[in-house]
Design a protein around this nucleic acid. Structure first.
Lengths: 230, 230
DNA sequence: ATTTCCTGACTGAATGATCAGTCAGGATGT
DNA sequence: ACATCCTGACTGATCATTCAGTCAGGAAAT
């Protein structure tokens, strides 16, 4: 993956797409197409067209469709998980322990704020995340392992610190279940509106996040209570 | 072509596909391929090959790939949701109200018992369910609306009956989140084992279901408590 | 004798990838 | 100063392959 060189960015040009931005334009287009059509459903032609670029240029920069996908996913995963780690570290480094609620919110907010933007470049990465997280395809599993497992371990440890009676095993389940609940928000299928006659809106992020935090924290505390007698 | 001989069969099941069973053999093969490759990734060729049948026969019986998919999904959805309704009705018709735990278990057990079998015909329908439930593709949304929304409403109502202080809106969220948690179990990615050094096994259905029921019920009760002051 | 079941051979469209070659501009040599 | 070379960015044309779907007609069942 060749990053844009400095000389390109300085070069003053007037063209359809600023040559220095074409690399990123391809990633943006790929994100959009992969999010809406899936890996198989998205075609290199459609991505090229959306990026206003010759199809061959994509192969020039990224070689294969698989590597394009990984580059696109890595860009967002690093942005999201960097922010997650930042917030979590800040919370845990504080002398007084944070609430479970604060940690759970740190788990979700960066994902939805970075991955849910549809305007300006954001292609709906959170939808890609949903399918990656539930996939058994080696490509997706490797991606999860490489970019998401490390931060997952940090959150699991945080759960254990805040709820000392939660054993590690339950903490892992708690993490997995939390991610599952978060899927509901990231997939944004509109089903909740259908089931509630429009009263529950999965595009109202803040309202939904509040419900999710309540639900997840309640679930975790129930896991703690379950073994209170052990 | 000469009638298929036993030696041609890849699977140990029956021999020389009984002509009357070919219709179902195609559905079984489709389920397997769709579950493991996705809708786009599964090819009619591969399905035909797995079913030991000419590709044209699939088109004879089901016309298009889309209709084959729907037929395959409908078969399992009806089996699963029929069983769910049966259990739920039995619980709710009893003069004394069931526990929330019993209802939540009724929500999940038929799905995993019918949709998780990999042996003898079962192709891992639960994985298809996961991608359908999180998809924005009209094909998947219609399928959810037609086959899953009715039973969803029954469970949402059951939540409200058992927890009278739960308003309908929160009950819908509770249902959505519960399904999200269930995804963790149905996707069976093996991630929980990776995150826990093998201590959490997502193929141990009974152990996992117990954790899920605890977590979900805790979550629902937290939603109830949230509005206790209203 | 019909209807139903089933097949091999085929089609046109779409796919990911490749390749020779253009172009602009920086570096090098004189 | 000028000519030469080199490289990274980029493209149109085209490749082999795979795809879902079609069709004429054979085989089997009723």
């Amino acid at each position: 993956m060749t990053p844009p060189t400095a000389s390109q960015l300085e070069r003053p040009v007037v063209e359809a797409v600023d040559p220095g931005r074409r690399f990123d334009a391809i990633l943006d287009a790929a994100e959009f197409e992969f999010a809406n059509q899936g890996f198989k459903g998205a075609s290199m032609r459609a991505i090229a067209q959306r990026a206003n670029v010759a199809q061959a240029l994509i192969h020039y920069h990224f070689e294969t469709k698989e590597k394009l996908f990984e580059a696109m996913a890595a860009r967002q995963a690093n942005a999201i998980n960097g922010r997650r780690a930042e917030i979590l570290d800040e919370l845990m480094d504080d002398p007084c322990l944070p609430s479970l609620e604060a940690v759970v919110e740190a788990l979700f907010r960066p994902t939805i704020e970075t991955g849910n933007r549809l305007a300006q470049g954001g292609g709906g990465y959170s939808r890609i995340l949903v399918s990656v997280a539930n996939s058994i395809d080696p490509r997706d599993q490797q991606l999860t392992e490489r970019y998401y497992d490390p931060i997952a371990q940090k959150f699991i440890s945080a759960f254990c610190t805040i709820e000392p009676r939660l054993n590690r095993q339950d903490a892992v389940w708690a993490y997995m279940f939390s991610i599952g609940v978060g899927m509901t928000m990231m997939a944004r299928t509109g089903r909740s509106a259908r089931l509630s006659d429009g009263q529950c809106d999965d595009s109202d992020i803040d309202a939904m996040l509040k419900e999710i935090v309540t639900f997840v924290c309640g679930g975790i505390r129930a896991l703690v209570a379950q073994h209170a007698l052990d």
